[in-house]
Design a binder for these strands. Structure first.
Lengths: 161, 161
DNA sequence: ATCATATATTTGAAATTTCAACAATATGCG
DNA sequence: CGCATATTGTTGAAATTTCAAATATATGAT
């Protein structure tokens, strides 16, 4: 760990806007969902993934993975969603440990009500900011970044240094 | 609000990785800072901005703005940082309402200890994933996105629809 | 079958964030 | 000046997240 290799100007000019804007956009989306529909951005994601799953069923762990979240947090979140009737917990046939989470009619309704506005806002905040060319140009590098992160040796865990 | 205009495949292919990766990278950075240095990512930002400010002084509101945060949250955060001695609150000379926050020697030490690893991790997670060309190619669109967001009519507030 | 270990989820408590109300001071106007 | 209103920051309580520990079931080896 001699002299650290700081980011140069070009690196900064990409890195900072990248995270700052993303955080900002996510915050606006989250706020909007809370206020208009009483659900957080993460709640929305859960409902959305459920709505796309076969039989609108998913297990806690799968949901946690899809949303890049800890099982613990997801369990708490499901508690709250279930408490509001947007989602229901069922026992699984095959694995006594697992639970299956199902979207309720009410949950689907909330999602269907929220989705159009949500998409419109994503459009307004992000898509509209970029030309079609830029949109295409970004996709490649971003996909590479995804793969890079996936390949990383368990970035969430003990990387001794 | 007739039929909503959903995102097409190209738009999705840019939008989703954009936010997902950013959230993921931020989460890894946050986790790393917490574990190695006992500070959250936001704490790091506060210390960093203070260290760059003239006389290592900033007001709550300025800090909140820099970090895109509410005054309330920043006030709580400063409470905690001050409780740990990383930062100190002083009265302002000119404005009786305001407080000035100052980095303490201890705070500077924590920051200086955390910074090299933090930068190295940013490099590993983000910069290393991209070729120099890509890095340059991204900067432009991202800067436009920044400007777009800045120009937006108060996205954080009541957009009636 | 029995034990040891792994996996899936839950739980509870502490830390943090959100939200709305509350100071305290500043500013502008009649 | 003296009031009305705007800023700046704080506070407290409720909601959420984090973290570590607990529970329950599965799996594989003996």
């Amino acid at each position: 760990m001699s002299e650290p290799r700081w980011l140069d100007q070009q690196e900064m000019a990409t890195w900072l806007p990248y995270v700052k804007n993303a955080a900002r956009v996510l915050a606006v989306l989250d706020r909007d969902l809370r206020r208009r529909h009483g659900i957080s951005g993460s709640d929305y994601e859960v409902l959305h993934h459920l709505s796309e799953a076969p039989a609108e069923h998913l297990r806690i762990g799968d949901l946690a993975q899809l949303v890049a979240d800890s099982n613990s947090r997801m369990s708490h979140r499901i508690d709250r969603l279930a408490g509001r009737g947007l989602v229901a917990r069922h026992a699984t046939a095959d694995d006594g440990r697992g639970r299956v989470i199902q979207l309720t009619a009410e949950g689907r309704q909330v999602l269907e009500r929220a989705a159009p506005e949500h998409v419109a806002l994503v459009r307004r905040l992000f898509v509209d900011a970029l030309t079609p060319d830029e949109l295409v140009a970004l996709a490649g590098p971003l996909a590479r970044l995804s793969r890079h992160l996936d390949a990383l040796p368990d970035a969430a865990d003990d990387v001794p240094c």
